[in-house]
Design a binder for these strands. Structure first.
Lengths: 336, 336
DNA sequence: GTGAATTAAGGTGGTACCGCGGTTAGTTTA
DNA sequence: TAAACTAACCGCGGTACCACCTTAATTCAC
């Protein structure tokens, strides 16, 4: 009973191929009795339409390509979870492309994505630059493949549908909380690599500092925690460096900073207040628990998938740029 | 320049369809000059063979299905990273199936996997039971779809190719370290849900405890850290409960336990030694840094993919059960 | 008011594709 | 004369359009 084809089903149910196809794709166009009979046979034979044949004939794959930079980043993984749940609603399958250690150009990979016949592309690479954005645009236009950016954005243009939060505002708000606590020497810890979203957090931080008449201090460090721990030790070796507040672009960076400082005898939050970004498990597992910007990352994934589905179905999306709501969570690393 | 077909290429290169097909699939059968000419046109038109047509005609998809329980688990995400890197070598694409919140039976999902025409299945669901194992076997046999289990196993049988580490041994070794420290009241913290690999860690723990003539204490808690923190608080409310050592089946559980205890005034590792499992980022971000069993999770993913590829290519795999090496890492939560 | 004719709509079957791989037999090239 | 290539066709398993057949409802002629 390896593989039942539509032909087997038709034969056994005593109907034509067309009718079987219709019972599956346009059930309302088939009389109930016939439909039931066909469905029974389908059940009996364990028939599932061959995805290739279906794709070839219909020119639709009911699958979307999911492009991610690196699965091991907690935010990416959570987002994929959200995408998966939403995709299931539409019976869409996910084709995964992990860019990590990708040495061929991204262009090559995107061509592959197109060749895979995916009905749409969910682009989650936050390390996006002008060139890539242009490429994505070309693909969307030339190949008519809808693209949605999830938790990433290209702020200088908005031809592509985007789901994100207002990272600028979040950075601004988090910084302001520390300013309101009376902190004067507030640092921003960000990644050495240029992620668009981190640039926005940084811009928000700068704005808040400027408004408060404070001096900005931006430290670019590695996303790798073993590396940045060393870095922090180096940086704050001389106790002369005044620091009483920190905004980190990732929870993990915030936590490794906290650990470094506590080992140096600093009190958190008495001496230094710390804010993270994302509200990952790292934040809950930190001691004290990390205050952070809560980002609805699962919702971003789900919303992005939902919008992509709409685009695929040809619906016009009036709102290209979709901003989801974020929260500021105060826990143990800031003073209420 | 939307979609070039093999026909366009043939026309422009002045050859027949057959020759184009050969250049791509059996290049050695085509004279170099012709081949070069065809390749140039392919490049020029940006031609990529239609995956559906190719799959339909060749009955191979050059894609594998990756079945995971939940992307947000750090071990799963890392493993997928490993799979992705290896898959890229073979130009295989990944179709992702996330079981999380799956309410239809898993049988239904597996049928879908088969219908997707994947050439093979990478099964990473560690919540495997007898029924599922039987189902996987049926699929492998009836549909001739190779299956590899990655970081999960079914210890009562070994028809399916498996890549794992010796969790029994790891549990045994970790427990022994604590015994050698002189710990007497060593608890195992495991998940309430039945994961096969956790059962093995538990069995290893029990063996070591028995050998040392110590009493076993097994606490089943949630994988959700907000829940288990409450649980730990409840359990160890009465200070009468003696406890001086802990083996946790996941790093995250270990860390939340540590946090709970330290808040109660316990010293780690002076009063209680703690061991985790996996060596995730949680372990490095814990304070003190978590001692744990280091599991080569990326390698497991890569190895599983490599074996699957072999199976797909029809090579016989003599070694069905593949055990990768693990390490015991001693850091700050145990006494050297 | 009745039976016949027309129409509409619902249900079903027939079949040309979709783009490629593989085979065969025949043709050209070195 | 072998090697390299062409031409033609089938098959893969579906989809979707179009055409056809029912059946029921409506209109019509008488």
């Amino acid at each position: 009973m390896s593989k039942a084809t539509i032909y087997n089903v038709a034969l056994k149910a005593g109907v034509s191929l067309a009718t079987v196809s219709r019972t599956l794709n346009n059930p309302e166009k088939v009389k109930k009795e016939t439909r039931d009979r066909v469905m029974n046979v389908i059940e009996e034979l364990g028939y599932k339409p061959n995805a290739f044949a279906k794709g070839l004939a219909s020119r639709r794959s009911t699958s979307v390509a999911v492009v991610v930079p690196d699965m091991s980043r907690s935010s990416i993984a959570e987002m994929v979870n959200g995408v998966a749940v939403e995709a299931k609603k539409y019976q869409y399958s996910l084709i995964l492309y992990v860019l990590k250690d990708e040495n061929r150009g991204e262009a090559e990979m995107l061509k592959e994505v197109v060749a895979s016949q995916a009905d749409g592309i969910l682009y989650m690479n936050d390390e996006i630059n002008e060139e890539q954005y242009a490429m994505l645009n070309t693909i969307q236009e030339d190949y008519k493949v809808p693209i949605v950016l999830a938790n990433t954005l290209y702020p200088y243009d908005n031809k592509l549908v985007t789901v994100c939060i207002d990272y600028f505002k979040a950075g601004y708000e988090a910084t302001n909380r520390l300013v309101q606590e009376g902190r004067k020497n507030i640092y921003m810890l960000t990644t050495a690599r240029k992620y668009m979203v981190n640039d926005l957090k940084e811009a928000g931080y700068i704005k808040a500092m400027k408004e408060a008449g404070l001096e900005t201090n931006i430290i670019r460090t590695s996303g790798d925690i073993t590396v940045n721990t060393v870095h922090f030790n180096e940086l704050f070796k001389d106790q002369g460096k005044k620091i009483d507040g920190v905004i980190a672009v990732r929870d993990s960076i915030a936590v490794s900073f906290i650990n470094t400082m506590i080992e140096k005898g600093k009190k958190i939050p008495k001496d230094i207040s710390v804010f993270g970004f994302q509200n990952t498990k790292y934040a809950s597992l930190s001691r004290p628990k990390l205050s952070c910007v809560d980002i609805p990352i699962i919702d971003i994934g789900a919303k992005a998938m939902a919008l992509l589905k709409k685009e695929i179905d040809g619906e016009h999306i009036e709102q290209k740029f979709n901003v989801l709501h974020h929260d500021i969570i105060e826990r143990g690393t800031t003073i209420k």
